[in-house]
Each structure stands twice: as structure tokens, then as C-alpha cells.
Design a protein around this nucleic acid. Structure first.
Length: 159
DNA sequence: GCCAACGTTGGC
DNA sequence: GCCAACGTTGGC
């Protein structure tokens, strides 16, 4: 099956694209997702090789800040098993994990972020999950056309 | 810091 | 199973 496209949110104060860029292999685990709808995507839908829009939320300038690729698909979120960790969840058991994570690898940090305001200004992006009222999903599907459009917007900004 | 929207919890 | 109360997300 062809690659699919996703958007993953992170608060840059918690984990930013620069943090990812500074990782040894530019790769990180995407743990801590504690929402069932997003969990289902991580566990069942997101495949190795899928492309990811890396999004900064809850910050001064919410924006898509770069691109990543899924390097390891859904496996149990082991942080949920660690009682000393903030992502610990007593309900999640090793033999029957509640939560899942993936690994992603940075492809590219945009030289200029594509801001939420700019996304909203695009007619062709009107149906993006991100832009729907009340949409809070931290892992969400993106259409190929939407992904391509955002990449193009990022390229236009620096040309 | 405010607050709307959403998800989860728990009493009944 | 309903729904009020509470907690969280996240733009502004």
C-alpha cells in the first residue's frame, strides 16, 4: 500500500523539532499519547515509511515546522509501565498494553515554519482535520494533497 | 490567563 | 446507559 500521511502535534516546550534534530540518529520515540482515537492510529494505521508533518502546538506561533518519516510502526508504549514516569498508566499491562507509540525520523526542518494562520488562509486546506473546530487529536490523518500543499507552501516561503 | 471544546470518570 | 463534574487541550 502507498504511504500514508499524518500530522503529529507536540508542544515545543516539551519536545521540539530542534530536539529531534539534535538526536543522534535524528530519530525519536513518539510516546505519551493518551487518547484512544490517536492510540488506534498509532497501533493499527500508521506504517513504516509513512510521512509526518511535525507540528508545534500550544506555543506562540503554532505551525508545521518540518517533515518526518515513520521509522518504526506501532509497538507498546513502555513509558506507561514505568511507575516513576509521568506517562505511567497503572491500567496498561505488559501482557495487554493500553497505549502504543511509533518512532519517527526527521527528514527536514523547514527554514520557515508554515503557520496555522497560513494554513487557514488556504482554501484547499479547509478540510484538514487540524483546522476543524474543536479538533484536538494529537495524531491525525492528512490527505496527500494536503501534505503536498504544505510542503509547497514551505518551499515558496524560502524561494 | 481565559475559555471553548472535547474526553474521561463515576454516581445513579 | 445517562449525564454532571472534572481535567485537558490549545488557540487566542
Amino acid at each position: 500500500m502507498a504511504n500514508q500521511y499524518w500530522l503529529m502535534k507536540t508542544e515545543p516546550t516539551t519536545y521540539s523539532i530542534d530536539d529531534l534534530a539534535n538526536e543522534k540518529k535524528k530519530t525519536t520515540t513518539w510516546e505519551g499519547v493518551r487518547n484512544y482515537q490517536a492510540r488506534n492510529l498509532l497501533r493499527d494505521e500508521i506504517k513504516k515509511g509513512d510521512r509526518v508533518l511535525f507540528y508545534h502546538s500550544a506555543c506562540k506561533e503554532p505551525a508545521v515546522v518540518g517533515l518526518a518519516t515513520v521509522s518504526k510502526e506501532g509497538y507498546p508504549d513502555s513509558f506507561a509501565f514505568d511507575s516513576s514516569h509521568k506517562y505511567f498508566d497503572v491500567k496498561s499491562k505488559r501482557e495487554k498494553p493500553t497505549w502504543y507509540m511509533v518512532d519517527i525520523k526527521l527528514d527536514k526542518k523547514f527554514r520557515e515554519p508554515v503557520t496555522l494562520t497560513e494554513l487557514r488562509a488556504q482554501k484547499s486546506l479547509k478540510e484538514m482535520v487540524l483546522l476543524q473546530k474543536g479538533s484536538r487529536l494529537s495524531v491525525q490523518p492528512v490527505k496527500k494533497t494536503e501534505f503536498d500543499k504544505i510542503v509547497k507552501l514551505a518551499e515558496q516561503k524560502v524561494s
